[in-house]
């Protein structure tokens, strides 16, 4: 009985994640508009954009390689595949031993393949966007990997659910979670780290040659990626606490589900608000910042290794 509920919650969570992520993007745009004394677009604007893009024709430059075309679809598929593997307040019955590694692969892989596809367009702006993205990606994913390694080390398990269920409150996990949360912000390419698109500099960077349906896939996978990353960091940071407070009874699971969803939406909205107050930085500064950030997961790793 309980396990059916777990399954339902996980699937429900994935579906909500899929539909809500673009909506949250709409909320962000609305908030940004409010900060700028504007009215702003309707909340469902991002969905409208995607719906429109799906109905437009796609232009493919002759210089493009096949990867250019399949990359957005693959990236989207990877992000969607990552959704049901996450922890939605209930033990994830769909999970398996080693799923944490798979999530890591999917998260890193999707943004990697998207930029590879862009680079395959042969456009110089896309090339610059790609090189920036790769340098940023390497720095960011190191932080992600180290944080996850902390979790694995702390609990000795390779399954996300078990990691969460076993942890309890541990300083090392909290630090790792915070590091993940910050890196999520950087990696979701928001200002001041919106370097790979940077419209005034490289006019949309990695997305420059995409149009129509391909652009819709790319956008959607970009937005989903934000959601996946956010939820993943919250899983590490807050989920253990929720489990401690509410347990795994029916009510407890439902409560943690709702709270987790709300918090992740809230985090995304706060990110949107922060973004509207920032300016773009330069790639060298961004890399230095990310390198400094590396201290956090290293500390957490050390803490975890001595068992705190």
């Amino acid at each position: 009985m309980l396990s059916i509920l777990y399954v339902i919650l996980t699937i429900l969570g994935s579906i909500i994640g899929f539909t809500v992520a673009p909506l949250v993007d709409g909320i962000e745009r609305k908030i940004r508009a409010k900060i700028q004394n504007r009215i702003g677009p309707p909340l469902i604007q991002t969905w409208l954009d995607i719906a429109k893009l799906l109905r437009k024709e796609s232009l493919i430059p002759r210089t493009a390689k096949a990867l250019f075309i399949i990359a957005p679809a693959i990236a989207l598929a990877m992000n969607i595949a990552a959704l049901p593997l996450l922890y939605y307040g209930a033990p994830n019955v769909l999970g398996f031993y080693g799923d944490i590694i798979l999530i890591l692969y999917l998260v890193v892989g999707s943004s990697l393949i998207l930029s590879l596809g862009a680079a395959a367009s042969g456009n110089p702006y896309a090339t610059i966007g790609f090189s920036r993205k790769i340098s940023l990606l390497i720095a960011c994913e190191l932080v992600v990997a180290l944080s996850i390694a902390t979790a694995i080390l702390k609990t000795g398990s390779l399954s996300l659910t078990e990691v969460i269920l076993r942890t309890g409150i541990a300083p090392s996990m909290i630090i790792a979670g915070i590091a993940l949360l910050i890196v999520t912000y950087i990696e979701s390419l928001r200002l001041p780290f919106e370097l790979t698109e940077a419209k005034p500099e490289i006019m949309g960077g990695i997305f420059v040659e995409y149009s129509g349906r391909l652009l819709a896939f790319a956008e959607l996978s970009h937005i989903l990626h934000r959601f996946v990353m956010t939820l993943l960091s919250l899983d590490i940071l807050i989920a253990p606490l929720l489990k401690l407070v509410f347990g795994v009874s029916i009510m407890g699971v439902l409560m943690s589900f709702i709270i987790l969803m709300l918090i992740s939406i809230l985090v995304l909205i706060v990110y949107g608000a922060i973004e509207s107050l920032c300016g773009r930085t330069r790639i060298d500064r961004a890399l230095i910042f990310t390198a400094r950030l590396m201290i956090l997961p290293i500390i957490s790793l050390i803490l975890a290794s001595i068992g705190v």
């Binding site: 745009r29 508009a33 504007r38 009215i39 702003g40 677009p41 309707p42 604007q45 409208l48 954009d49 232009l59 419209k199 005034p200 006019m203 949309g204 997305f207 420059v208 040659e209 995409y210 149009s211 652009l215």
Partner: peptide, 14 residues
């Protein structure tokens, strides 16, 4: 004009 969902884009492809 963002009220109407208009967005300025940087490339004719979009």
């Amino acid at each position: 004009v963002e009220r109407f969902g208009m967005k300025l884009v940087g490339t004719p492809r979009h």
